[in-house]
Design a protein around this nucleic acid. Sequence first.
DNA 1: ACACTTTTTGACGAAATGTCAATTAATCAG
DNA 2: CTGATTAATTGACATTTCGTCAAAAAGTGT
Lengths: 197, 197
Amino acid sequence: MSESTGKRTDPRVLRTRQLLKNALVELLQEMSLDKITVNKIAERATINRVTFYLHYRDIPDMLEKMAEEMVVDVERAMDRKSKEQPWNSSDGILLELLEHIASNAEFYKVIIGSRRVPIFHERLRDVFTRKIGEGMTDKGLNERGIQQDVALWFGSAALLGTIASWLRSDLPYSPQFLARQFVLLLRPDDIRPEEKA
Amino acid sequence: MSESTGKRTDPRVLRTRQLLKNALVELLQEMSLDKITVNKIAERATINRVTFYLHYRDIPDMLEKMAEEMVVDVERAMDRKSKEQPWNSSDGILLELLEHIASNAEFYKVIIGSRRVPIFHERLRDVFTRKIGEGMTDKGLNERGIQQDVALWFGSAALLGTIASWLRSDLPYSPQFLARQFVLLLRPDDIRPEEKA
DNA sequence: ACACTTTTTGACGAAATGTCAATTAATCAG
DNA sequence: CTGATTAATTGACATTTCGTCAAAAAGTGT
């Protein structure tokens, strides 16, 4: 994952933070969050416990900062193709998103798949809500009697939850296939143009 | 919420457990889970700290047992109308579920709305997955090229997530209305029979 | 090679954990 | 009602984690 942004050039702090983050992800593969202590993180990262506090206030603070970095990464991935029609095509934003997740699967598997770290879940949901909201037209919804905010709740939860299940099952489908499934599930009326023909 | 099942007749243990559970829910309204200690729970419940350990191994154990009880409650609520067509009618299981949640809103608001306690989220997702799976016919899916398990991931995540957002927003819609919205969102082709007529 | 920053070390009190044994209080059966 | 049983309280204990020191060691960049 990326280092947020910055003029932090000192390789020592980069190294330390990377070690800490790797240690935390490693530990999350082995135990749930409530069993993880600053002690264990520092030990696994082979740095001193005091050094941890030089970088993060506590574990929740560390998680928050890692979640911020994740949001940056995800948004950058999705923005790569934001020009195209966003959600009704399976090779736009959706595919970029799934490919980004697939190529960082070990991280996302732990963070939103198996061990649920609530803050990552929330942040990702917020990103999805925002992105879906941007590309949402109310025309199709209104004439079907669907409330806009409910559709947004529904869509972002479905997206996030499906990705989580996909990760939990160890990515049995390709990003391409899953993107296509989303399109079929989200907008079934757009899809079957010649079904009855 | 219900006491799981049993021949525990001694009113003292009922009282103690109820006090402990109420205390935990209260505390979750005020702070996140990682700030909650056995000390605080016992203090809030006005029972001795040692008594806590007479009933639960630790806080995760307590959460697990509360989650079990929640699952029992939810399933009982949904089974009340399981004879009817389950998901494509807005007055069947779906409505019963939403009404159950609405009438225990303070509990569910904390547990799956604001403060996310992962285990509750997981257990509820599992219940939804099971229930949706029971009533899922593959006919509509197959001809639309939708994978069965993906549809299940999608449906249960959408249901759970929408309910969570509904709770977070303080139940701005009635259970009836929201159930109807679900039907519209989940099965749009079943719904508009005369739209083009 | 020197000034500056980061990390390490050893240490501290405070708080939380989990577990005792002994005492007090409540409940149930006869 | 009473005695036996079960539950809850009390005070105490060693252990772990927490968050924060100040001083020393190690590293970075100019």
